[in-house]
Design a binder for these strands. Structure first.
Lengths: 345, 345
DNA sequence: AAAGTCTTTGTAAACGTTTACAAGAATAAC
DNA sequence: GTTATTCTTGTAAACGTTTACAAAGACTTT
């Protein structure tokens, strides 16, 4: 019943062979350019293929050679401003090697992740790039059991036999906090991301490292648990305000929480950076469009996506066999929200 | 040489058949649930499948039934803030029907589009959702010739036999311009998108319609050609300023151009909305985070993506045979940048 | 009890490729 | 001129499914 299937004028290798008066093996050989074949036949076959507008059928090919030239990309949500650049990096790298990328949005739900992993396996993708959203051993184990190359994006997972790419989150958080301290701030509030994620936990560690290093007392009452969403940033500050604890700065574990935080501060008539300095994390594009311009820690997201696929493909082709952990180094982008800019002038 | 291919413990329908002591046909029938088969065998097969952790091979299936359960999605650039919501809509709709979506970024290059169309055809996708970036008859013709269902996103293309989904751009532009006129503005500058795109051309028409309707002289000197990018919005205003023509409002054909325009105005010390009112188009998420909050014309982008895939799948399954044109209606979102908010108070 | 009908199962071909193997032609070696 | 070697091509099997067709078994119907 499907569209156009009757007058399906699909031309196969067989048709080409017939027209060029050779065997299908010969056609295949010429088209793949692996084996040598005489110039005479080559020309005839190429001509026939062009005349018939032959387009190889990759699914038959995939079945035979057990290689689909496609990879799965699992992320929580493409609408989250962090991901478009990552996805673009992935896609550009995949394109170079002629891999198709199948996009999957899980909204951070463990069972969606599982469904997609199985879905992708049924499609016999050659590899999977995975950004897990909650530290879930089960899905990691599932991935491991598939016997398919996997690379983990933006997350560290202990004891997994897969490669990974991430940013040094602990260092980034350290730098961010240090920057605030350098501005003379001493009562620095912290909004964490999901603490179950390595990225969330590591940023919390970096924050504490910096306090410790500069002999500032860590104050539990200034630390809030967020979830990497705008709303959680807003809420955190609202709670902070309600608690009436003094603070002169905020380090939020990502940019959208930082923006949520600033929006809340504004709502209560508190000025940024004059009254409270704010630093975010990620350096999404919005950070340079938002007012005040957001001081933040830059992750090279596009490059991370690219590198992940480079690694994945190396595993697929067998060029690389043992897991490798690529860690990018974060960079402080000083803008308005931390008040660091005026100082610099 | 590929990863793990030797100790590939892939279990096939044959293995299941052997273990359950039935023929492979029976296994297939049970797994697909089409034909009736006795409860006894059903149970045995299901058990065997579970014990062996059988996962069907969709590529073999695709080859046999000529249906890959995957669709291609061609867009210019996922990093353009307009697209994430669209893509998410597409993906969510595809998921419901168990289709994989293969993402392709073309950067608006015609030859990239062509390459991807052929690439997707080789992969034998069941359908293609296409957002063309320059009105290129050749690629449309190519798509037509494939004999594969196609739906056009966000673009009208004359005389194509494919379905399409878009927003009434002309109406949207009319409403935007009218809103500015309602604010008492009479010298309204216009920044177009690519005029070769229907979305670009239609918005220009809507702008002119409104001027005509309210008996305002159309002034060529106030109209600028942009390309839907931040930079082109910025440039347009710079040129406008240099030309020293008076203006009291700007209608930009999309939000990022509007933001580019405002940034430029700010640079020159011109206040928005006090000195110049600005309206954009699209209502990307950034419009509500940017300062001033951007007055704009909302397109239901997510829904458009969803609807496109619904349509596409109807064509694939044969439920729908003749092309259908779905046109969403745009909505004015009054915020700060047009000064419309104070008035309303 | 024989003949007919319906239901359940199996056999084998097909989908469009790639590739091991064999065969034949051409060239080289003696 | 015979034999060995290399090169080019074809034949056929295989990849993992689905499905047309046939066969056999279980019921009806007379």
């Amino acid at each position: 019943m499907a569209y156009d299937k009757e007058n399906d004028r699909n031309v196969t290798i067989k048709d080409v062979a017939k027209r060029a008066e050779v065997s299908i093996a010969t056609v295949s050989r010429i088209l793949n350019g692996k084996d040598r074949v005489s110039p005479l036949l080559t020309e005839r076959v190429l001509l026939a293929a062009k005349e018939l507008q032959y387009q190889p059928n990759d699914v038959a090919r995939a079945l035979k050679i057990k290689e689909s030239r496609s990879i799965g990309l699992i992320i929580p949500d493409i609408e989250n401003p962090f991901f478009p650049a990552l996805v673009r990096g992935v896609q550009d790298a995949a394109k170079i090697h002629n891999y198709a990328v199948i996009l999957c949005n899980t909204d951070g739900k463990t069972d969606e992740e599982k469904k997609y992993i199985q879905f992708l396996y049924s499609k016999r993708v050659d590899g999977i790039a995975f950004t897990e959203s909650v530290d879930n051993k089960k899905n990691i184990a599932l991935l491991d059991s598939l016997g398919i190359p996997v690379v983990l994006l933006d997350r560290r997972v202990e004891g997994m036999k897969a490669s990974g790419v991430s940013t040094d989150n602990r260092l980034g958080a350290f730098i961010a906090t240090k920057h605030l301290i350098d501005q003379g701030k001493r009562r620095i509030a912290f909004i964490s991301g999901s603490p179950k994620l390595s990225s969330g936990a590591d940023r919390a560690s970096g924050y504490q490292d910096a306090l410790l290093h500069y002999s500032i007392q860590y104050d539990k009452k200034l630390a809030f648990i967020g979830s990497f969403t705008y709303e959680s940033g807003y809420k955190a500050v609202e709670n902070l305000l309600l608690s009436r604890h003094q603070f002169d700065a905020i380090f939020a574990s990502n940019d959208i929480m930082a923006i949520g935080a600033i929006e809340c501060l504004n709502q209560y008539g508190i000025r940024v950076p004059e009254d409270v300095a704010v630093v975010g994390f990620d350096d999404i594009r919005l950070a340079t469009w938002y007012k005040p311009l957001l001081t933040t820690i830059r992750q090279p997201v596009y490059e991370m996506g690219q590198y992940a696929i480079k690694l994945l493909i190396e595993h697929i082709t067998g060029e690389r066999s043992s897991p490798y952990e690529k860690i990018f180094v974060p960079e402080l982008m000083i803008r308005q929200s931390s008040g660091g800019l005026e100082e610099a002038k």
